[in-house]
Design a protein around this nucleic acid. Sequence first.
DNA 1: CGAAAAAAATAAACTAGTTTAATAAATACA
DNA 2: TGTATTTATTAAACTAGTTTATTTTTTTCG
Lengths: 197, 197
Amino acid sequence: MSFEFRSMENYDVLLSYFKHIKGAPLEAAEMQEITSYFGKRSYKKKTLLMRAGEANTKHYYIEKGLLRLYIIDQSGKEFNILFASERQWIGDLGTPAETPYYIETVEDSIVYSIAEEDFNVLYKRYIKLAQYIRKSYVFLQKRFVSILSKTAEENYEELVADHPGLIQRLPQYQISSYLGVTPVFLSKILAKRAKKD
Amino acid sequence: MSFEFRSMENYDVLLSYFKHIKGAPLEAAEMQEITSYFGKRSYKKKTLLMRAGEANTKHYYIEKGLLRLYIIDQSGKEFNILFASERQWIGDLGTPAETPYYIETVEDSIVYSIAEEDFNVLYKRYIKLAQYIRKSYVFLQKRFVSILSKTAEENYEELVADHPGLIQRLPQYQISSYLGVTPVFLSKILAKRAKKD
DNA sequence: CGAAAAAAATAAACTAGTTTAATAAATACA
DNA sequence: TGTATTTATTAAACTAGTTTATTTTTTTCG
């Protein structure tokens, strides 16, 4: 109990990230300011942090756990756009516009959250924070090309090769949704794949 | 002849963009500095500006014309990732890493080019330049979701609705490549669509 | 621990989109 | 202006992936 409380008070992981992007140790006043912008909370598995229709959504930096950003189409089907875990950001960069996305915890998670306006302040001060967006873009573009030009089977192999950890932490139907195919089809791919051993 | 020469000397379109992102008039020295970072050139239709395998690629700001960024997959098929025209940027944000992409003019075009290191200098000075990357991300994410969750027919309708100008400026096979389908299938969609009138 | 719920597998009929090939229409340019 | 080249159309056979339904396996949690 008291352990959990102390963990919520502790901004070490966040501050270590800012130290990293600053490329130098942080001063006391700086730490004070940074932490003042963020909230910290823990959520249990399958908790919604953001839902379509909300405006002015927050950006989340993950200390522990696994989250997914997804969309629900007209027919009610979910599509996972990205997963994010320890020491990664997740959020809708389209904010403050009304978001079409959902964010949900896949595992019990501890996350820092920051509002867009505060994020923008830090963004100007820590220019490397902009690298997060640029990296996200490069990642998404690569993923886009893969989905567009490769078969689901090839995309699965690529996921296993590039992010083996994810496969273990995710239920199969979340992976199929990330690959843009039905759970039934992914199951078929895996059955075929298993035979090859 | 002399007219064309004067056009190449003229950085008005570029400077007006920087004035716009600065949100205030530019000083003479500032103009001098900005223009010193950029080259300006005109290219005729179907000229390659960037090809897969190159490192340290440039960023391009378009004064006139239409360009496409695309990839060629293992089987030799091309996939258009994005089109950019007047007053838009195009380039591989993954630079300085070796690029997997190609950039080609679709129409005769006039473009300004800037190297990554100079781009970074401006990027720090004009924080709003970072908005270009953020906007690109938001655009790509939307496009990604569309390709993933909608049929080619729906994606075509969306393109007509959102960018009617593009349809007129592009040959049909470039559009099909942007939608992630074969020219044959797009032709089928259009035939079906034409009947409805 | 055991029952209920959630997730995965399997099968069969179906459809969106591909491939190949041949023909027609539009465009370029000598 | 006419011919060669590029682009678009049409058709038919094919395949990657979907849908619906049923059964089996795994996980959750009282």
